[in-house]
C-alpha cells in the first residue's frame, strides 16, 4: 500500500504543471473527512457511556426515596458470583455461534444463487430480501406464532394430514435453536445482498480466463469467486456476531427469556436486572461484561481470521 500512495503524487506533478494548489497528505485528507463523523459519535456516545460507567460503580436505590452510594467495584464482583450471569453467557454464546454459522452459510448461498441469471430476477431478489424488511420486533412475533403449538405451522400441517399432534418448538431444549433460525432468517438477506454487490465487482474477464484455463466449477469458485469475497465474509461474520450478541427485541418479543430462563441471553438478563428489578448499578455492571464479551469475540475473530485477510 505504501508504494501505491507514492505513485500518484510522483506522477501527477509532471503531468499537470499548471496545478498550483498544494495537495493534502493522506492523513490530512482522511482526518478532514473522518473528524466530523467521529466528533458526532463521540459527543453522542460518550455521555451515555460515561453515565453507564458512573451507574456501574454506584448502588442506586429507588424504593424509600432515590439515593445513590459509591460502592466501587462491588457490582462487578457480584456479577461474577451470579449463577444467572454465567447461564446467560452460555445461552448468548450458543445462540451466537448457531446464528452466525447459519446466517453466513445462507447469505453466501443466496448471494451465489442471485448472481445467476434468473427469470424475473428483480422480483426474486426483492422477495428474498423481504425478511430483512421485517423488523426484529415483527419477526419475533412471526416466529413466536410459527413455533408455538397453539398457532404454529407444525400443528397446522399435522392437522391437515389428519393427525391431532400438537407440534410445539418452544421447548426448553429447542428454543435457542428456534431463535437462531429466526435470527438467521432476518439477517441472511443483509449478508446476501452485500456479498451480491461484491460479486458484481468481479470482472467478467476473470471468468473467461478461468474457462480458458479449463478450471472446474469448484476451482473457479475457489480461485476466482471466493478471494474477493473473503474480506467481506470476515467483516460480516464480525457484524453478525455483534448483532446476535446484541439481539434483544427479537428475544424479548418471541420468548421473553423463557420457557423458564432457557433463552435468557445476556441482553435479556441485563434488561431484567435493570428494568424489572430496578437494580441499575448492577445492570450497568453486567452490561459492561456483555460489552467486553462482544469486543473480545470480534477481537478473536480478527486475530484468527481478519489479520490474514487484511494483508491480502
Amino acid at each position: 500500500m505504501a508504494s501505491d500512495q507514492a505513485l500518484p503524487k510522483a506522477a501527477a506533478r509532471p503531468a499537470l504543471p499548471v496545478r498550483t494548489r498544494r495537495e493534502l497528505t493522506d492523513t490530512q485528507f482522511a482526518l478532514a473527512i473522518g473528524m466530523p463523523v467521529f466528533l458526532f459519535l463521540v459527543l453522542v456516545v460518550a455521555y451515555p457511556l460515561g453515565y453507564a460507567i458512573w451507574m456501574s460503580v454506584h448502588k442506586i436505590i429507588f424504593f424509600g426515596g432515590y439515593r445513590t452510594s459509591f460502592v466501587g467495584l462491588a457490582n462487578f464482583a457480584r456479577v461474577l458470583a451470579d449463577a444467572n450471569f454465567w447461564w446467560s453467557t452460555w445461552v448468548t454464546l450458543r445462540l451466537t455461534v448457531e446464528a452466525v454459522i447459519l446466517t453466513m452459510l445462507l447469505g453466501l448461498g443466496l448471494a451465489l444463487m442471485l448472481n445467476r441469471p434468473i427469470v424475473a430476477g428483480g422480483l426474486v431478489r426483492t422477495l428474498v430480501f423481504l425478511p430483512w424488511c421485517v423488523s426484529l420486533y415483527g419477526a419475533g412475533l412471526m416466529f413466536a406464532y410459527l413455533a408455538r403449538g397453539q398457532t404454529g405451522l407444525g400443528t397446522s400441517i399435522a392437522y391437515a394430514f389428519g393427525s391431532s399432534l400438537s407440534v410445539d418448538l418452544m421447548t426448553r431444549d429447542m428454543v435457542i435453536e428456534v431463535l437462531a433460525v429466526g435470527a438467521a432468517w432476518t439477517m441472511a438477506p443483509l449478508v446476501a445482498f452485500f456479498l451480491l454487490a461484491n460479486l458484481k465487482t468481479i470482472p467478467r474477464r476473470l471468468y473467461d480466463l478461468a474457462a480458458l484455463d479449463r478450471l472446474s466449477r469448484f476451482e473457479t469458485f475457489w480461485n476466482v469467486t471466493l478471494p474477493p469475497l473473503r474480506y467481506t465474509l470476515f467483516v460480516f461474520t464480525s457484524i453478525i456476531t455483534v448483532l446476535s450478541m446484541k439481539l434483544f427485541d427479537f428475544i424479548f418479543v418471541m420468548t421473553g427469556g423463557g420457557p423458564g430462563t432457557s433463552s435468557a441471553t445476556l441482553t435479556y438478563q441485563v434488561y431484567k436486572v435493570s428494568f424489572k428489578n430496578l437494580d441499575l448499578g448492577y445492570g450497568a455492571a453486567m452490561s459492561f461484561y456483555l460489552l467486553l464479551l462482544i469486543l473480545a469475540s470480534t477481537f478473536v475473530l480478527y486475530l484468527v481470521w481478519g489479520r490474514r485477510e487484511a494483508r491480502y
Binding site: M1, L41, A52, F288, L290, L295
Partner: peptide, 28 residues
C-alpha cells in the same frame, strides 16, 4: 488510504457498534 491513527479510529467505530442498546438506554 493509509494514515496515522487509522486503527484507533477503526476501534472507535467498532466500540460504538458493539455498545448494546440495553446498556445505553437509561443514560440516553
Amino acid at each position: 488510504l493509509e494514515f496515522r491513527f487509522k486503527s484507533v479510529l477503526l476501534f472507535a467505530i467498532l466500540l460504538s457498534v458493539a455498545l448494546p442498546p440495553v446498556s445505553t438506554l437509561i443514560p440516553f
